[in-house]
């Protein structure tokens, strides 16, 4: 069963009115992606290729200018309770305690205070944050804050998780710990995830498939099936012998050496 589908999706941003130097931008063009139930698919591509645009379309925060987005076979026409997203910024509200932040989404959905509290404590425990329920975000480290953001996302019990470079602001070690937390959760809860990332190893370590996007206007130019075991254990997967060759292939697809030359010139 297909959970998340982009069907010939295009997005054009018209020029800003009243600004002479502003030009329209074709962010993405005819993107076809289908993510099966329980699958983790990563999307990589050069910066500015429209990856985040795709995520906004998937979460219903923005509408495509062409094509259709489906979640569970239903066309997306606004934010859906089956979809939750997580960004590079933790977006914790500084005036709320960690528990209140984790409860935030369900509070808006109107879940009763008692039930909200119990569920929030459950998820905080799951991500080793139960000792910090009554702390404010500024009192936590970057890694802990991002774990709180993950708890808030999982608290919504979404079918589909949209992740936009969720760990790119973290240091290398913290990142690996959080990747492991995420991989474990995705496996245990059998969630479907669409992960946008710059980090090639992260894409390979966490996903079943990696999609490569071209420069703007973004199109999917390649799909790599990551048929390596241990999707729930990225630490182990990182060390697998086939990660190296796959990295090499991704690097050539992304023209990384060419980009480096252009920048040097």
């Amino acid at each position: 069963m297909i959970r998340l589908q982009f069907d010939k999706v295009s997005k054009y941003f018209p020029p800003v009115r009243g600004r002479r130097d502003s030009e329209g931008v074709q962010a993405i063009k005819d993107v076809d992606v289908a993510v099966e139930d329980g699958e983790v698919v990563s999307l990589i591509g050069p910066s500015g290729c429209g990856k985040s645009t795709l995520l906004n379309l998937g979460s219903g925060l923005d509408r495509p200018s062409g094509g259709n987005v489906f979640v569970d076979g239903q066309p997306v026409d606004g934010p859906s309770e089956h979809v939750a997203f997580m960004l590079q910024k933790d977006l914790l509200l500084p005036w709320r305690t960690i528990r209140k932040n984790v409860e935030f989404g369900q509070e808006i959905r109107g879940l009763s205070a008692g039930e909200r509290r119990d569920r929030a404590m459950h998820f905080l425990g799951l991500y080793h944050l139960d000792g910090f329920a009554n702390h404010y975000p500024h009192e936590l480290s970057g890694g802990m804050r991002q774990r709180a953001a993950l708890a808030r996302t999982m608290m919504m019990d979404p079918d589909v998780l949209l992740l936009d470079e969720p760990f790119s602001a973290l240091d290398a070690q913290t990142k690996m710990v959080l990747q492991a937390d995420l991989a474990r959760t995705l496996q245990e809860e059998k969630k479907t995830a669409f992960l946008i990332t710059h980090d090639l190893v992260e894409a390979l370590a966490l996903s079943d498939r990696v999609l490569v996007m071209s420069r703007r206007p973004g199109r999917i130019i390649r799909e790599i099936i990551v048929d390596i075991p241990d999707r729930n254990d990225p630490m182990k997967r990182r060390q697998h012998e086939r990660i190296g060759p796959m990295m090499a292939e991704l690097m050539s697809l992304l023209d990384i050496s060419k980009t480096a030359e252009e920048m040097a010139a």
Binding site: L61, G78, P79, L87, K89, L91, I108, R109
Partner: peptide, 14 residues
Amino acid sequence: VDPAMVSLARSFNA
């Protein structure tokens, strides 16, 4: 106000 925070709330259908 950080527009991403508003987007977050909107994604919860606020």
